[in-house]
């Protein structure tokens, strides 16, 4: 089954993590992708910080034009830092993989697992 895994964190909490520690985990993340290479399908990306986000929103009134605003779509403190597409046998396999995500050592980090709609199955 294919799933999108979305890596989220709390930038306000990330700031408290010492720089060296952040870099060490970044290295672990490279190793993690290498080790699990066979489970990834095409696609996926690490995203620029949320301060670079632009959002197009539906108009408040019916018939109005969509509006362009600065910032992410959600006011939530949790922000998506990247996503990958994985292809694994079932949800348990996806959970087992995600559990080893190195950044889960930091407070406020969460990874959402969402199955992809597969047409014609």
């Amino acid at each position: 089954m294919k799933y999108v895994i979305m890596f989220t964190s709390r930038p306000d909490l990330d700031e408290a993590v010492p720089r060296e520690r952040q870099e060490a985990v970044y290295q672990e993340i490279f190793g993690w992708f290498d080790r699990n290479g066979d489970k990834f399908a095409n696609g996926g990306a690490e995203l620029q910080p949320v301060s670079t986000a632009t959002t197009v929103k539906a108009a408040d009134s019916p018939g109005g034009k969509p509006v362009v605003v600065d910032g992410p779509f959600s006011e939530a403190k949790e922000q998506i830092g990247g996503f990958s597409i994985i292809d694994v046998p079932d949800l348990d396999a996806a959970i087992a993989l995600v559990r080893t995500w190195p950044s889960l050592a930091f407070p406020g980090v969460a990874v959402e697992i969402r199955p992809i709609v597969e047409h014609g199955e």
């Binding site: 089954m1 799933y3 046998p89 079932d90 949800l91 348990d92 996806a94 087992a96």
Partner: peptide, 14 residues
């Protein structure tokens, strides 16, 4: 069905 929860008795650490 849609999230792929498997119909198995788990083993190991889980």
């Amino acid at each position: 069905v849609s999230a792929g929860i498997s119909l198995t008795v788990p083993d190991g650490a889980d």
